[in-house]
């Protein structure tokens, strides 16, 4: 693991404890370039923790994390910065800056990078807002936005600097069905541009619509890692129970058969 050129992300036997409590145990998976990898599991299973480990926000107690060939867990905070600049993230609670309007929230990290002019930053912000269909929201503050709009601003912020990898932490949680569809379409649009994505969710329908490969996590351990086919044919009781409510539609079955 971590040696294949196409593997843009690899986790090898990662274990993590926080305050003596087991969070992750022996977690391993690889994500290839351009792939959308979905991590499924019940609440509190350790899904979001995997994203924090991937970004180096939490250091694993054992195991290795490779991002684009670089071993994250051996790097210090300053060494991680250039790698993190290639990754966009949409946080579960959006993590928008309350004191900044939408325009400034999106441009904040672009300005920090000092690589493009003010005019180009403004143009990029407008492009991103148009991409998420929020053209007229640039002067609004986060408290003035609905849940779905906040999520779209968070996506706009994550794609603003054209990252190679995007991580989504529960992108459709707490959102009404119409906005869920809008967000899923947005994620698919980003996916079609060739961006590698990792999506953490507990919504089976969203997961199966968006993902190419999947991992199911329970109590910090991965109990299934494979394709949609592997999910539908799994024999494990927990996997069957987790997917029991899901009725695959025609489109999905066609996707599996392909």
């Amino acid at each position: 693991m971590g040696n294949n050129v196409k593997d843009i992300i690899s986790l090898c036997n990662v274990s993590l404890k926080l305050n003596g409590r087991k969070i992750l145990e022996d977690v391993s998976f690889t994500v290839q370039e351009g792939e959308t990898f979905v991590i499924l599991g019940p609440s509190g299973a350790g899904k979001s923790s995997i994203l924090k480990v991937l970004l180096g926000l939490w250091k694993p107690d054992s195991g290795s994390v490779f991002i684009k060939g670089a071993e994250m867990s051996s790097l210090n905070e300053n060494q991680m910065m250039p790698l993190r600049k290639k990754i966009g993230i949409v946080f579960q609670g959006n993590a928008l800056f309350d004191s900044l309007n939408v325009q400034d929230n999106i441009s904040y990290f672009l300005k920090e990078r000092n690589s493009i002019s003010e005019r180009d930053i403004d143009r990029r912000v407008k492009e991103c807002l148009a991409f998420v269909n929020l053209e007229n929201a640039e002067n609004l503050y986060p408290e003035e936005l609905s849940g779905g709009m906040k999520k779209r601003v968070a996506i706009a912020r994550a794609i603003a600097f054209k990252p190679d990898i995007i991580l989504y932490d529960e992108p459709t949680t707490g959102i009404d069905p119409i906005n869920v569809k809008i967000l899923e379409d947005l994620i698919l649009k980003i996916q079609n541009e060739g961006t590698t994505s990792i999506i953490v969710t507990h919504y089976v329908t969203s997961a199966l619509r968006l993902g190419n490969s999947f991992a199911l996590i329970k109590d910090g351990s991965i109990i299934l890692n494979g394709s949609n086919d592997d999910i539908l044919n799994a024999k494990d009781d927990f996997v069957k129970e987790f997917f029991s409510d899901y009725q695959p539609d025609e489109k999905f079955l066609q996707k599996v058969n392909k």
Binding site: E77, M81, R84, I89, F91, A95, F97, D98, E112
Partner: peptide, 17 residues
């Protein structure tokens, strides 16, 4: 409150100290 709403994590995640 920035810490609790993951804004500090966002700063670090996007490569800002």
């Amino acid at each position: 409150s920035m810490k609790l709403s993951e804004q500090l994590d966002a700063m670090r995640a996007f490569g800002t100290d």
